[in-house]
Nucleic acid binder design. Structure first.
Length: 644
RNA sequence: GCCGGAGUAGCUCAGUGGUAGAGCAAUUCACUCGUAAUGAAUAGGCCAGGGGUUCGACUCCCCUCUCCGGCUCCA
């Protein structure tokens, strides 16, 4: 008996029946066999050592691929569970999948793990790896599996949910054994534990069983494993790099903002430097809003509870709102978590006709949301923040062009901020939703065409829209490859109904407008947090709080230094003189650690010749004797706002 | 909110029941200097806050606040 395997290059090769994946890989090439972790046969991932029982499309999966890494990490998770169950008698285990860059396993143990525990567990894992225990696959019936895992309730809960196999009776589930350890698992796995080249446990934390906060909280251990110790080290270095650009560290270092404990969690104050950054961002936001045809409105920070009742926020969003303020003989007031109802009321302030539309209302609106204490995270998740919020009201005929305009606006905004790698997500109607079906269908079609026309790659998140409307989220990739969701364009079918918004269409027919929520930056705080991390604090010159710092060599040059600063300020440059009296080297160092984009050093020669010494951030050299006029012109050019 | 960890000078951190420490930053003085740290001196503390145990608490216990890592949440 023989079977035919078709390789990825199209070649068809005959192999004897019962040959293993590893043997096939060896026949293709020893290097391939060495890095092989599994094979794919007709789309199904299988263990290397498992005999091949039918012909078909065949591919060797290696550690170079994401699938290969998953196999490695999943096998690492088994070793983790094996170590923990061995070290902690009476403990039980739940699930342990591969995740991005690593793996985890959830356990129920008497005591939460300490960092010292993790060291011991990792040590035991290394022993298991050096013992090179083979992973052995075994198929069995549900009943057998239930008996095998009788002592492990989380496992039996999973087995209970498995449908009995009709194709291969008696083989409902598979388990993998290595030595005395056995885990319920679909596989595939590495041939043996010795094929885990590099591994590290990272941390432990609490995690709910099945992600449900009403259910038992388990102890999760996170780890990472890689094809080589070099790659493990590179990964750990990457984590350190990410830590270095953490905006919560850079913000105070660069004197941009702080979170005084006296204010409460998630409430930020902007210092002068951060205030300048924020002003620049706000100015640019207003400028672009104006250019894209938006009108400006201003609304208060609180409103009577009735408003939030009408808008539906008290029904659907109350747990994220600060509690009401009671006053004698007055209705309760609530601080706003969103700006929409206010803008809706501006729409409603008079009768509208189709001639008023589209009506684009925008506001840098500060909102307050009661985020759970455990989720507050610097500027990225605060309790008080300002949205560059807008609400556009338009007719059905205008929807397509409005969506195109909003998308263009968001992309322009993000490009100006220095992002050029975008990915969009189109979230469609969820199971539970409100609003006319016709509006859903029409809007989703128009959102998709707007995306198509923009050329931005996108994926459809089926059923992940809000209950009140579909949306587009724009994600950017930052300098170290992390994705951030920033802009959002969101249809709303519920607020126009709740507030009974209307306009007189041609022929004096009453129609309900379409409503588009849009935030280009999202929240300004979060946006600035992302910018700080993206640029690692070295902001582009146009947004840098200090654009040029001027360093007199000795204090007899102070006067000239201030004259240079005045000259630059005339050109619109934010310039600062460091006349602290320190040495030149020290002042240069300070300017660099504060990430000032440009430094001008002025000494005797410069005073005599009206020149400056120019040094730019990130460049290790300096340029001497640049005529002041030339330097000014160059700096003014470099500091120009994008799009200006 | 839940599980765990942490909070000592502006910052980074030592300090395991017996008088509170270092480096950087700050201030003062000297130095007047050409591209990433000149030197010396000085000052700086309710050891997050409150309660308890103890002859005695930064240290042990309880509560609160804040932060960190996750989970959950983000209509």
């Amino acid at each position: 008996m023989s079977l035919e395997l078709r390789y990825p290059d199209g070649k068809v090769v005959e192999h004897p029946d019962g040959v293993t994946g590893l043997q096939v890989a060896e026949s293709i090439g020893p290097r391939l066999a060495a890095s092989a972790v599994a094979v794919r046969l007709d789309g199904e991932l299988r263990d290397l050592g498992r005999p091949i029982d039918h012909g078909g499309d065949f591919e060797v999966v290696t550690l170079d691929s994401n699938e290969g890494l998953d196999v490695l990490r999943h096998s690492s998770a088994h070793v983790l569970a094996q170590a923990v169950l061995g070290l902690y008698p009476g403990s039980t285990f739940a699930i342990g999948p591969a995740i991005e860059d690593g793996f985890y396993y959830d356990f129920k143990v008497d005591q939460p793990f300490t960092p010292e525990d993790l060291e011991v567990i990792e040590g035991r894992m290394r022993e298991i790896i050096s013992e090179d225990q083979p992973f052995i696959r075994e198929a069995m019936s549900r009943d057998e599996a239930l008996r095998l895992f009788a002592a492990h309730p989380f496992k039996t809960e999973i087995i209970d949910s498995v449908e009995p196999s009709e194709v291969t009776p008696g083989e409902d589930v598979t388990v993998y054994r290595n030595l005395d350890f056995v885990d319920l698992c679909r596989g595939p796995h590495l041939p043996s534990t010795g094929r885990i080249p590099a591994l590290r446990l990272l941390r432990s934390s609490g995690a709910y069983w099945r992600g449900d906060e009403r259910r038992e909280q388990l102890q999760r251990i996170y780890g990472t494993s890689w094809p080589s110790s070099k790659e493990l080290d590179a990964y750990l270095t990457r984590l350190e790099e990410a830590e270095k650009r953490d905006h919560r560290r850079l913000g105070p270092d660069l004197d941009l903002f702080s979170f005084p404990a006296e204010l409460g969690s998630g409430l930020v104050v902007w210092h002068p430097k951060g205030g300048t950054l924020r002003k620049v961002i706000e100015d640019h936001s207003r400028d672009l809003h104006e250019r894209f045809g938006f009108d400006f409105v201003f609304t208060p920070h609180l409103a009577k509870s009735d408003l939030w009742q009408t808008s539906g926020h008290l029904d659907y969003y109350a747990e994220n709102m600060y509690p009401g303020m009671e006053l004698d003989n007055e209705q309760e007031y609530r601080v706003k978590p969103m700006n929409c109802p206010f803008h809706v009321l501006i729409y409603k302030s008079r009768a509208r006709s189709y001639r008023d539309l589209p009506l684009r209302l925008s506001e840098l609106g500060s909102v307050y949301r009661y985020e759970l204490s455990g989720v507050v995270h610097g500027l990225l998740r605060a309790r008080g923040f300002t949205q560059d919020d807008s609400h556009t009201f338009c007719t059905e005929e205008q929807l397509a062009s409005e969506l195109a305009l909003h998308l263009d606006f968001c992309l322009t905004w993000l490009r100006h901020a220095g992002f050029d790698d975008f990915e969009a997500e189109l979230s469609t109607q969820p199971e539970k939703s409100v609003g006319e079906q016709g509006r859903w269908d029409f809007s989703q079609k128009e959102l998709a065409s707007a995306l198509e026309a923009s050329g931005v790659p996108y994926r459809v998140a089926e059923g992940e829209g809000a209950f009140y409307g579909p949306k587009i989220d724009l994600h950017v990739k930052d300098a170290i490859g992390r994705r951030w969701q920033l802009s959002t364009i969101q249809l709303d079918f519920t607020l126009p109904e709740r507030f009974d918004l209307e306009y007189a269409a041609r022929g004096n027919v009453t129609e309900r407008p379409y409503m588009i929520h849009c935030a280009k930056a999202g929240s300004l705080e979060r946006f600035m947090g992302v910018l700080i991390e993206h640029y690692a604090g070295a902001l582009p010159m146009w947004m840098s709080p200090v654009q040029v710092s001027i360093i007199p060599v000795a204090d007899r040059h102070d006067e000239y230094a201030h004259a240079v600063a005045a000259r630059l300020r005339d050109g619109g440059i934010r310039a600062e003189v460091d006349d602290s009296g320190e040495t030149v080297g020290d002042k240069i160092r300070r300017a660099m650690t504060h990430k000032h984009p440009a430094v001008l050093v002025v000494g005797d020669d410069d005073v005599a010749n009206s020149t400056v010494g120019l040094r730019l951030y990130g460049e290790d050299r300096d340029e001497r004797g640049v005529p002041l006029i030339e330097a000014t012109n160059r700096l003014v050019e470099m500091a120009k706002t994008p799009g200006s």
